Simulated assay, not measured.
Amino acid sequence: MILNYDDALAAISAGETSWETLTRNVGRNDLPAILTEVAWSMTEDQLAVALREAWVGAERPEDYLDRDEWIGMFESVGYRHNLDRVRPPAEVVLYRGGIDPNRMAWTADRAQAEWFRDRYPGGRLWTATVRGGDLLAYYDGVRTGDGTGSGETEYVVNPDDIAPVPA
C-alpha cells in the first residue's frame, strides 16, 4: 500500500504511473512531489486532473514545488476552469490575503481574501487587475472537490507581471 511519498517513489521505480493508485492514501502535501515524478507519463487531460488535485489539495502548494515547475505544468495544459479548457477572461480584478502578495493563488472574492488575511498574524490584503495572459487556471468548489462553485474559488496566476496594491 502506498502511504507516503517514499512509497510512491518506490512504486514509480517499479513502473507504476497511475495517479489514482499513487495518491489514493497519501497526505495532501505529498501530491505536488508525486506529480512531478509522473507528469511526463500523462496525457494533457490526465495532467489537468492531477494538477488540480495537487494544487488545491496541498496547503500552500508553492512551498512544495518551485514556481517555475507549477507554471510550466499549468501552461502545458492550457487555461482551465476546473477541468475544462476554456478561454480566460480578458482581465479580472482579484484579491489576495496573507503575508506575501507575490504568490500564485488569488480570488475574485474579497471576503475570502479577507479571511486569508486574518488567518495570518500581520496579514495584509492586496488587489490587482490581472490580464488573461497571466491567468493559469480558475477553480471553484475548492476544498469541496465537487466543482459546483460552493467552497473556495481560486485563480492561479503567474505573478511575475502583476502589480498588487493594498486593497
Rank of each mutant, 00 (worst) to 15 (best):
A113R: 02
A50N: 02
R85V: 13
D30F: 08
R80E: 08
V93W: 15
A111L: 14
Q46N: 08
L83A: 04
R67M: 09
D118K: 12
E75W: 15
D45T: 13
V86Y: 12
V130C: 02
P101E: 05
L47M: 10
P101K: 02
R96L: 03
L125E: 02
D100I: 05
E37R: 14
T127W: 00
R24A: 13
W55A: 07
E75A: 13
D68G: 09
T36A: 11
A39I: 04
R131A: 14
D109L: 10
R60I: 03
A58T: 06
L31A: 04
T23L: 04
V92F: 00
W106A: 03
A48M: 02
I71W: 03
I34Q: 09
W55Q: 07
S41Y: 14
M42N: 02
L94V: 10
N25F: 05
R28D: 12
P61F: 01
I34G: 05
V92I: 11
I71Y: 02
V77K: 11
W126C: 02
A105D: 08
A90F: 00
Y120F: 15
R60V: 10
W115Y: 14
G98M: 00
A48L: 08
R110L: 11
R119Q: 13
R85N: 10
A105M: 08
Y95L: 01
W106V: 01
E75L: 14
A108I: 09
D66N: 14
R85Y: 14
Y120E: 15
G97F: 05
D109I: 12
L31C: 05
G57F: 00
A113F: 07
R96C: 05
